[in-house]
Simulated assay, not measured.
Amino acid sequence: MLSIAVIGAGRIGQVHARTIASHPQARLALVCDPVQDAAATLAGTYGARSCQDVEEVFADPQVDAVIIGSPTPLHIPHLLAAAKAGKAVLCEKPIALDMKDVDAARTELDAVTVPVMFGFNRRFDPSFAAARAAVQEGRIGALEQLTIISRDPAAPPVDYIKVSGGIFRDMTIHDFDTARFFLGDIVEVHAVGQHLDQEVAQAGDFDAAVVTLRAASGAVATIINNRHCASGYDQRLEASGREGTLFAENIRATTVRLSNAEVTDAQEPYLDFFLERYADAYRLELSAFIEAVEAGTTPPTSVADAVEALRLAEAATESATTGQPVRLG
């Protein structure tokens, strides 16, 4: 059983703590957050210990692995400190807010020998993973076009948006990794950002965007994002190839459909948010992490994957700002 500490008792820390506590091969040992009440409350929910000083996590001999859910500027420092302490690492996205921070730490990152995995949980969603497996098996022939739709029910608080790094680093970065998961290397990015919500615009960010990615293979991915969706958390994927098309559709609480004099085939709304929609993905992500740590194998998502996703986010930001496509060398 892997003894795991969670750094960060915010929303994503709560997701990971709950996932660890319900996993038969994991134990939540410690929750760390500079806000004492937040750390103690989350730890107490699952019978774990809590602390405020992150150095206690790295020095604790009872901790085998660390899940990093701290603010993004601390991801690389916490990753490196955990690795130096011999702890395996599962780090949330993005790896940093700026590629300059990655470049400054490149030598240290390259020297890490402990298992390090990044939290691109979409890869582990059963539907998306099955679609990708079908592509790999040649079920639709050569993949030519990929469409990824990701719309949130509502925008996050403006205070969060101001420090998030922007929609491409915070939201689209999952879709960038999904596109690479299906298509491989991306050579060109063209993004159009939208200011549909003036409160978000005043915070300096786009609240919707459409991104086109061209892969080295010639395939093209289209990513559609929006911070608002009246019908719930809209998460869909379509992969089209020469010999067929794959669809991964939205998930609802039940499969019940209603037909009467007013509606035909009416269904329940989509699941409300990522906590519900990707619960299985977080569980399977944790299982993959535990398996890699215990078997001594390479985790399925790497530092290199995180770096490439950030590169795409920066390119999309540049493209949306200038109105021009950005070539990646």
Rank of each mutant, 00 (worst) to 15 (best):
E56T: 05
E56M: 09
P73A: 02
D103P: 09
I68T: 03
G69R: 03
A82P: 13
V54R: 08
K93L: 10
H75I: 02
H78V: 04
D98Y: 12
A85C: 13
G86N: 07
V89S: 04
V102K: 01
L79S: 04
A82F: 10
E92T: 03
V63R: 00
A104H: 08
I68A: 05
A85N: 07
H78F: 10
T72Q: 06
C91S: 14
A105D: 02
S70G: 14
P61C: 05
A96C: 12
L97P: 07
L90V: 03
L90Y: 10
A96V: 04
V63S: 07
A83S: 11
A59C: 14
V57E: 07
E92K: 00
P77H: 03
P61W: 09
I67K: 01
E56I: 05
A88G: 11
L97V: 04
K84R: 15
H78K: 01
I68D: 10
V63N: 06
I76M: 08
A85Y: 12
E92S: 12
D60C: 09
D98V: 03
D60Y: 14
A88C: 14
V102T: 06
L79M: 15
F58L: 04
Q62W: 12
V102D: 07
A81W: 10
L90K: 00
I67H: 07
A96Y: 06
G86F: 13
L79R: 00
K84A: 15
A81M: 11
V54M: 15
K84C: 11
V102M: 07
K93F: 12
D98N: 08
D64K: 00
F58P: 05
F58W: 13
I67P: 15
A96M: 08
I95G: 03
S70F: 10
I76W: 06
I67Q: 03
V66A: 06
A83T: 01
A105T: 00
V66H: 04
T72M: 11
K93E: 06
F58C: 03
V66I: 10
P94W: 02
P77S: 03
G69S: 13
A82H: 03
D64M: 08
L79N: 02
V63K: 00
K93Y: 15
Q62K: 12
H78T: 01
I68G: 06
E92P: 13
A105L: 02
C91R: 00
D98P: 08
T72D: 08
K100N: 11
V57N: 05
P73F: 07
G69T: 10
K84Y: 14
E55Y: 09
E55W: 11
K87Y: 14
A81E: 10
E56D: 12
V102Q: 04
A59T: 05
K93V: 03
T107C: 15
E55S: 15
A85V: 06
D101G: 08
I67N: 06
H78G: 04
K100E: 10
P94K: 00
H75M: 07
P61N: 02
A82M: 10
A105K: 00
S70K: 01
I95S: 01
H75T: 03
D64R: 00
P94H: 02
R106L: 09
D103N: 13
Q62F: 15
K84E: 15
V102C: 14
P61V: 02
A105M: 02
L74S: 09
A82G: 08
H75P: 14
A104S: 15
L90C: 10
P73V: 00
I68M: 11
